[in-house]
């Protein structure tokens, strides 16, 4: 089926279907929230348009987050991790990639902020990099763990 969404979708039809459902659910929730907010705003809040733009931005971000969280928890990312050996290999790979991600994050932040002159500026660069790395590890690990469990349940009896 021709659609610009194909760019974001994997080849595997099960994964494809699940992700399309997540996108549809996310969009449905966003549209419902927008209509609800518009109704509440017209009848009660009477916010300025600037505030509405902020709310619309929050809804857009929530939409992306919803799809992302559903994807991570669905256990479809690591669809071929079935053996313990492969699982451990993936854990090590997540560790390596996490460190690379953290180092890149640190580098980009360092370049964009310039050379730090005091402790506070150092923390402004190192803090987000550490948090980003922890976040990366956590998300990838949860996704791997969920996928591994799901795949084991689907193995030949």
């Amino acid at each position: 089926m021709k659609s610009f969404l194909n760019v974001f979708l994997p080849d595997d039809e099960y994964k494809r279907t699940r992700i399309l459902y997540f996108m549809a659910e996310g969009t449905f929730i966003s549209v419902t929230l927008l209509i609800l907010f518009a109704f509440i705003n017209n009848t009660w809040l009477q916010l300025e348009i600037g505030d509405f733009s902020f709310f619309a931005f929050i809804i857009a971000i929530s939409n992306v987050l919803y799809i992302f969280i559903r994807y991570i928890l669905s256990g479809i990312e690591y669809s071929d991790v079935v053996t313990e050996k492969r699982y451990k290999r993936e854990v090590r790979s997540i560790g390596r990639n996490g460190l690379i991600f953290g180092a890149t994050f640190l580098l980009v932040l360092g370049i964009s902020s310039g050379i730090p002159s005091n402790l506070e500026e150092i923390l402004d660069i190192v803090g987000p990099a550490i948090l980003g790395t922890i976040f990366y590890f956590l998300i990838s690990y949860i996704s791997l763990k969920r996928s591994y469990k799901k795949n084991k349940d689907l193995l030949d009896d």
């Binding site: 595997d12 099960y14 994964k15 669809s79 795949n151 689907l154 193995l155």
Partner: peptide, 21 residues
């Protein structure tokens, strides 16, 4: 040309494949 997970799901009756599959 699908993942092992998809085959497992079809065999367990947890996913209805497309006609093409």
């Amino acid at each position: 040309k699908v993942t092992r997970q998809t085959i497992g799901l079809i065999e367990k009756g947890k996913y209805n494949p497309s006609l093409q599959l």
